[in-house]
Amino acid sequence: MPKKLLQKFMPKPETLRNNKYLRIFGGLLDKPNLWTLNRKSAPGSFAVGLFVAWLPFPFQMVIAAGMAIFFNVNIPLAVALVWITNPFTMPFMFYAAYILGAKILGHNTAHFNFEASWQWVESSISTVGPPFLLGCIILGAIFAFIGFFVIKSLWKYSILFKWNKRN
């Protein structure tokens, strides 16, 4: 796997260590594997980052960092991947999650009227909430699974390619 390419897009360890929200992890951030990028930490980082990217919660970067610490994978890569959900992609991703959850739960999606207000959120949390959360968790798990095995395979084939090139 092109290590330099991935490292170009990852936040620097110093930036993350000094982040006011990540200071809650304190001494847990001192494990060396959390900051190195290798064939064992990269696939797990992709899985963590892609799963958390689908979670509809604030502070996704903190959640990704906590999960990266728990699973002992690269924090910068996991944190960088949560930015897949951004103001441009979020509506499409979360609508797809709602549609998937509604199909699984057998809910009707034909009469879905969104309003950007707190009253709408409070009134529809019981109808829209369960299918939306279910869809987010399922799509997060699917993308984490795919991301893990794609990166693991790419890394393996990259090593084999370099090995064959040397011979």
Rank of each mutant, 00 (worst) to 15 (best):
45 S>W: 09
27 G>Y: 07
87 P>I: 14
22 L>T: 06
115 E>H: 12
104 I>N: 11
129 G>A: 02
73 V>A: 08
97 A>L: 07
103 K>T: 14
95 Y>E: 01
76 P>F: 03
83 W>H: 02
56 P>L: 00
118 W>A: 15
54 W>M: 09
134 L>G: 10
73 V>I: 12
119 Q>P: 12
75 I>S: 00
68 A>S: 11
46 F>M: 08
88 F>T: 07
135 G>L: 02
78 A>W: 01
67 M>N: 00
106 G>M: 08
122 E>G: 15
125 I>S: 09
37 L>R: 13
50 L>G: 03
111 H>I: 13
124 S>A: 07
102 A>H: 06
84 I>S: 01
124 S>D: 12
35 W>S: 00
35 W>I: 02
81 L>R: 07
128 V>N: 02
81 L>N: 05
93 M>T: 09
116 A>Q: 01
94 F>E: 04
72 N>T: 11
70 F>N: 11
31 K>G: 13
44 G>H: 00
94 F>S: 05
115 E>V: 15
134 L>C: 03
55 L>G: 13
43 P>L: 08
52 V>Y: 06
73 V>Q: 00
21 Y>R: 14
117 S>M: 08
125 I>G: 11
38 N>D: 15
120 W>N: 15
113 N>C: 11
64 A>T: 10
130 P>S: 05
62 V>E: 04
46 F>V: 02
144 A>Q: 03
46 F>Q: 01
127 T>C: 11
112 F>Q: 13
30 D>L: 13
91 P>D: 14
100 L>P: 10
139 L>N: 11
143 F>Q: 07
109 T>N: 03
25 F>Y: 15
66 G>T: 09
123 S>T: 15
116 A>N: 15
135 G>N: 00
124 S>Q: 09
114 F>T: 01
48 V>R: 00
48 V>H: 02
114 F>E: 13
52 V>W: 03
119 Q>R: 14
124 S>H: 08
43 P>S: 13
110 A>P: 02
45 S>A: 08
32 P>S: 01
60 Q>D: 06
49 G>F: 05
72 N>G: 15
31 K>A: 11
61 M>Q: 11
100 L>A: 06
113 N>L: 08
64 A>W: 05
89 T>E: 13
68 A>V: 03
126 S>K: 12
44 G>T: 00
